[in-house]
């Protein structure tokens, strides 16, 4: 970096500094206050939560009667949460890894391989994002429990996947694929063609190029999608309910939460704490993958 560049950078920071910082703080506040309300409420006794605004407790941060751990205690002691946590993990991890892998292969083919109708095929895949999963659940469940035959020929075997983890993974994979293919195709397709071409000249086949070159280069995009998919699956209630059920052995964390509150909502104050309990893992995942978004990672991996 030349001396002029350093000076220019300094100049830029002086100019944009205050404006940037204030804007960021305002937006962050706007986005955080709603959650803050629940966070504060999760530490307040039930009667207070229901009778005064959460902000009033902030006025007396040191008054003992304003604060309690009771909500966390009763949410966690309801039982079965450990098991539900494990189930959520057993659902979410494979439901993230499998679609990422399958989508990466497909995105590579859509970007760098030539075959008939690939534009149309790609757009059809992306268009499938619009399918409301509620409309897909009944047909899929029917396939899971009875298979499908067309004119006497079995087109889908009866795998008896209802109530199994495999059934949930496949469903989540399918529902996550359109977005995954779309995001990854956008990223992989924008990689410079010179890389792929020179690798071809060196005699590398598509599989090698994909695995040794494209995947390492695509880590930020893969990580970004992995986060979304993981969060989506972790927070999903409907698919888990349909394909795993709500029994105590099989239920995932979101179902355990919904059960805690009940259909009429008598115990909704417990949700304040439970919502934060269920957020803990996704936030940890986010923070651990955050480093993949750091500037220069892409360029660095190419420069070697």
């Amino acid at each position: 970096m030349t001396a002029t560049a350093v000076a220019a950078k300094k100049e830029e920071e002086r100019k944009g500094g205050w404006f940037v910082r204030i804007t960021i703080v305002v937006v962050v506040l706007l986005w955080t206050i709603p959650t803050l309300g629940v966070l504060v409420s999760s530490f307040r006794p039930e009667q207070l939560v229901d009778s005064t605004g959460w902000w009033t407790s902030l006025a007396h941060p040191l008054r003992d009667a304003e604060w309690t751990l009771g909500n966390y205690r009763s949410a966690l002691s309801t039982g079965g949460f450990g098991n539900a946590f494990l189930n959520s993990l057993a659902v979410a991890v494979p439901s993230t890894v499998i679609p990422v892998t399958i989508a990466a292969f497909a995105a590579y083919a859509f970007s760098w391989m030539n075959f008939r109708g690939r534009h149309l095929m790609f757009v059809a895949v992306v268009g499938l994002m619009v399918v409301p999963l509620q409309m897909a659940l009944i047909p899929i469940l029917r396939l899971y429990t009875g298979g499908a035959t067309l004119g006497g020929v079995t087109v889908f075997p009866d795998l008896d996947l209802g109530g199994t983890f495999l059934g949930v993974w496949l469903a989540h994979t399918a529902f996550g694929l359109p977005l995954a293919v779309y995001l990854l195709r956008n990223y992989i397709g924008s990689l410079p063609s010179s890389i792929i071409e020179s690798a071809r000249i060196d005699g590398a086949d598509h599989f090698t190029i994909f695995w040794r070159l494209i995947i390492p280069l695509s880590v930020p995009a893969l990580a970004a999608f992995a986060i979304f998919q993981f969060l989506w699956v972790w927070n999903d209630l409907l698919i888990a309910y349909v394909f795993l059920g709500g029994s105590h052995e099989n239920r995932v964390l979101t179902i355990a939460l919904a059960d805690l509150v009940g259909s009429r909502g008598e115990n909704w104050h417990l949700l304040t704490s439970a919502a934060f309990v269920s957020m803990a893992l996704p936030m940890a995942v986010f923070f651990s993958l955050q480093r993949y978004f750091v500037r220069g990672l892409t360029a660095g991996s190419v420069k070697g």
Binding site: W31, F228, L257, A258, S278, M279, M283
Partner: peptide, 12 residues
């Protein structure tokens, strides 16, 4: 902090 809401389930 901007990303935080995505980590909250819809029930939350």
């Amino acid at each position: 902090l901007i990303f935080l809401p995505m980590a909250i389930s819809f029930v939350g």
